[in-house]
Design a protein around this nucleic acid. Sequence first.
DNA 1: GATAGCTCTCAACTTTTTCTCAGGTTTGTG
DNA 2: CACAAACCTGAGAAAAAGTTGAGAGCTATC
Lengths: 225, 225
Amino acid sequence: MRILIIEDDHKIAGAVKRGMEQEKFAVDISYDGQDGLGQALTIDYDAIILDRMLPEIDGIEVCRTLREKENHTPILMLTAKDKLNDRVEGLNAGADDYLVKPFAFVELLARVRALLRRPVETKEMVLKIDDLILNTMTFEVTRGGKKIELSATEFSLLEYLMRNPNRILTKDNIISHVWDYDADILPNTVEVYIGYLRNKIDKPFAKKLQLIQTARGFGYKLAAS
Amino acid sequence: MRILIIEDDHKIAGAVKRGMEQEKFAVDISYDGQDGLGQALTIDYDAIILDRMLPEIDGIEVCRTLREKENHTPILMLTAKDKLNDRVEGLNAGADDYLVKPFAFVELLARVRALLRRPVETKEMVLKIDDLILNTMTFEVTRGGKKIELSATEFSLLEYLMRNPNRILTKDNIISHVWDYDADILPNTVEVYIGYLRNKIDKPFAKKLQLIQTARGFGYKLAAS
DNA sequence: GATAGCTCTCAACTTTTTCTCAGGTTTGTG
DNA sequence: CACAAACCTGAGAAAAAGTTGAGAGCTATC
């Protein structure tokens, strides 16, 4: 499996390259849009990891150009934090998935693998568990039609839980998927954020079924009916 | 499969060696970094278990040196509990995984197996004996479709039994696989936990065949049909 | 440069599990 | 059948895991 990383930040590009190589991928790097576009058109990659912000030619532009030239290599777009439009714009330009910086490496790996596994299928963008709805494009979360305001970390945590419903996720799982790969996060921090989420998505909705459940000694799980 | 343990604590090294040999691995031990590094460069091991803190040459240094010399043997680093940075440092030095001391032997075994199988990733995740099913990924246990709630220790014990069906396991076997290596566990504690398991997986299901059987004077075994 | 909001840690507190003990029961052996 | 060794189990203290309020440190915004 051959992958192209188009990313001007050498540190990130290097880290991702090393990680992916350890996972037995062949990895090339381009440090700007011009060069990256050329690479992508020359070599038939299995997937492209593309930074949104790039010198020379912008990531969006690279993506659009590739699609115009009938190149359908799966593209994972890396976007800056809380720039809502970036993602919409990226997906509109033909990207297959997006990932918010800073990201956890396992998360990137999982996304890339997902892209490779189902090249044609479009990514699930609206997640639904019971009457809880999370829209990964607009970042809106509602329960029973009522809007819920979440912080970035809370959103990321809930998204991870909703992508793995009915499955117990350990704190280690959660830490490595929700937090940046070089962050040293205590298990207690996960507990605290679970508490925040509960206050927002369970407590105000007096139902017999609490969506977020504790599995003492194992982790947490989101219950689907 | 040949494994090298580089660990200055003779007690730990010995326990791991015995356990791994029971699992049909060939095991060598080095008691310091200098010697370990030489061993690792001389013999082509399938995996290396490397203590972070070592006399002569530090574990990090051993790891870095091996990688510099283009040796890519999978390395599992053992780190002390309270050293948060050890983990990052170890992975940066080229280790493939880490494990925090004190650990249970089964945990170590699982990690080593994961490293050996890294390219394929076909870990056995669902164990099945009769109508008893244990999912190591989601931590779910069911019998005859009915969900069973277990504590962490009970789960760990049942997993060990299910990975060795129809085989008599002594209390010593069980203690060294299920508990941390430095825990002083009485044989009676195993008896107690076997009792807990029986209450949950055998008693409520009135079948003629009790899955957990006592082999008086030897140990216990899990009966498969 | 004050304010507001978010992230993350800490510490006190609650809940549950872990593990041991002690006394009871079963099993094998002479 | 008597006896000891092995095993089982109810009770409960100690330890661990999880919850939560408070707040320090950052960052963005006006």
